[in-house]
């Protein structure tokens, strides 16, 4: 079981961390805590995994619920800019532009309602709508409509600003 958990942890940490990061407005410290909380729950419930869905979907279910629980802490994370090494001016400019776009994306995601935020983060991670329906408990049809609406909202916000 320990080996199984270690494999799951190594294979899924990055995806879980990135989803948490999106949920807490790009705040790395909060995202790390949330990712750790998620894996604590994965570890505690691993014996209940019944292969009804893929392990990835199962972990995402725990991740989104852990994120939703975070609401009670009433904290709003703030985007932590990564350090940029200033040895190549062109690279620095490109990297700065990339960071600004990311910051804008995080700010726009933060403007969405809790459920919308979770759904769009799953879309950004590249999950299929069927899988998103399984994680959220909405019907496939419902998810399709929701995803379309949120995608439009996010694109408009990132392009034109909040």
């Amino acid at each position: 079981m320990k080996t199984q958990f270690n494999n799951i942890y190594q294979n899924h940490y990055e995806k879980v961390y990135r989803l948490c990061l999106g949920y807490v407005n790009g705040d790395e410290a909060l995202a790390k805590d949330l990712a750790q909380d998620t894996f604590v729950k994965v570890w505690e419930h691993l014996d209940q995994f019944k292969n009804k869905s893929s392990i990835g979907t199962w972990i995402y279910r725990i991740t989104v619920n852990t994120c939703l629980l975070f609401i009670r802490k009433n904290k709003k994370g703030s985007y932590s800019l990564p350090e940029i090494r200033e040895d190549d001016t062109n690279v620095v400019e490109v990297e700065k532009a990339h960071q600004t776009r990311l910051q804008q994306m995080y700010a726009c995601i933060q403007e969405l309602k809790e459920t919308e935020r979770i759904v769009i983060l799953l879309v950004l991670e590249g999950l299929a709508q069927k899988e998103i329906a399984d994680i959220t408990g909405h019907s496939h049809q419902n998810v399709r409509v929701m995803v379309h609406r949120i995608k439009e909202k996010l694109t408009k916000c990132v392009t034109h600003g909040i």
């Binding site: 270690n6 942890y9 990055e14 961390y17 590249g126």
Partner: peptide, 29 residues
């Protein structure tokens, strides 16, 4: 900007995420 561009930007980030050791968390728990 298209949604695809947003998704690409999203997926490109944290490619060098360091995976923290989970053992201390397990022991603490």
């Amino acid at each position: 900007m298209e949604f695809k561009d947003i998704q690409n930007t999203w997926q490109q980030q944290s490619e060098q995420t360091n995976i923290p050791d989970f053992t201390p968390t397990q022991q603490k728990l």
